[in-house]
Nucleic acid binder design. Sequence first.
RNA 1: GGACAGAUGGCAGAGCGGUUGAAUGCACCGGUCUUGAAAACCGGCAUGGGUUUAUAGCCCAUCCAGGGUUCGAAUCCCUGUCUGUCCGCCA
Length: 438
Amino acid sequence: MHDIKYIREYPEDFDVAMARRGMGAQSSALLQMDGDRRAVQTQLQELQAKRNDESKKIGMIKKDGGDANDAMASVARMKDEMSALEERERTLMNSLSQHLASLPNIMDSDVPDGADENENVEIHTWGEPKNPNGANKMPEHFEIGEALGMMDFETAAKMSGSRFVLLTGALARLERALAQFFLNTHTDEHGYTEASPPLIVRDNAVFGTGQLPKFAEDLFRIPESSVTLENKVESSRWLIPTSEVPLTNIVAESIVEENSLPRRYTAFTPCFRSEAGSAGRDTRGMLRQHQFYKVEMVSITKPEDSEAEHERMLKCAETVLKKLKIPFRTVLLCSGDTGFGARKTYDIEAWLPGQGAYREISSCSNCGDFQARRMNARFKLEGDKHTTFLHTLNGSGVAVGRALIAVVENYYDPVDGGVYVPEVLKPYMGGLEKIVKS
RNA sequence: GGACAGAUGGCAGAGCGGUUGAAUGCACCGGUCUUGAAAACCGGCAUGGGUUUAUAGCCCAUCCAGGGUUCGAAUCCCUGUCUGUCCGCCA
């Protein structure tokens, strides 16, 4: 994990921005830390310059066969002071970086204030929810799936524990059909480049997207250790919690060509989450699993383009739900519900007749330059001497497991307990019209 | 898993422990020449940081990463990462 590029002038409202995140004032402490660091650095650099001069002299004297003892003694005198300064600089830089790494992203000014998800703001709705008030008792997806004999939680628990599911037959195929449909739509119609990324990543990748160091407990860790002569070195790799991680890290540590922007990637991958701390929530069914499939969209843009790209991405996600004819609503997350790395987030919530509620099926976030700073991802404007941090965005397009739930509940036929196949999925289901108990 | 070899600027590719941020070629940008183009010739062409009103100058750092030896490291030593080749195993 490298040092995060820090801000030199904190904007007046930086402390206000942090307060919206429930954090105390930061700017004066940061400026102080940075000032200290720079003072030490300047001192050190002056010494280094002197040392370099002396060393060059020694080189020249020795070349001519002269006596360089005076110059060597002079350098020797600087040594202690230099190593002390180096040590101090390292310490100061480390604490500054660590501090910066722990700070959340600054939210966009149009993110509404609010404590939690109850204060998110509805932007719009689409479609006619079946059973809008939950007046009629309608079955939930797990009741439908279990009755069909194609959704088996017990068998999955036997081999893997809780929060896993075994799909079989037409429901297993439905999952694959959804993924295919999403991917094809995003690549063929929305201009995304399909990627098939690694599912296991290193520390720095997860740090770059912001899940580390703060949210390590939400991830599945693969411990690794290598034994060296002196000691045992512990390290880790991580199962990706979302393909946002590998897709965004495509541009990590690089300076991309301006004319290659915006870059848009989509991938269909499993996602792994420990779900630590969510004990007791959504325990029934496959709404909240340790492992689920998701089609993800990631965009890399210039700063001035990220807002428009965010709206575009949201439309791409909404489009697949419209094509599936799943009623949904779109909400703008309030300050209390906006994630650590996001500047602004829209959630799309699909209507689930069995629950009589809208439930999250997609989350589209503009991260601004937050992730780019962490992973040092830049581009260079034509004619500009310096590089500029990119903006990164990610969105589910959409969660496959939850889309399956939505299809099962919205296309349920109470007459025979079957599930109609949505029109757009039929080509992927071998023309099957309806999933019924075999 | 075992045994070797390697990692240098956008690319290719030099580099004895000493004024090397780094030869040379290609690519790219600007100019001269030309009716225009090509060729030829001339010039420019990394990133981060410090200082500074300055994207002027000066300075520091960076030749995969982190340590070390040394007055001085791209060059020597150690560790890690990655790449290549061979062997073993394997979807």
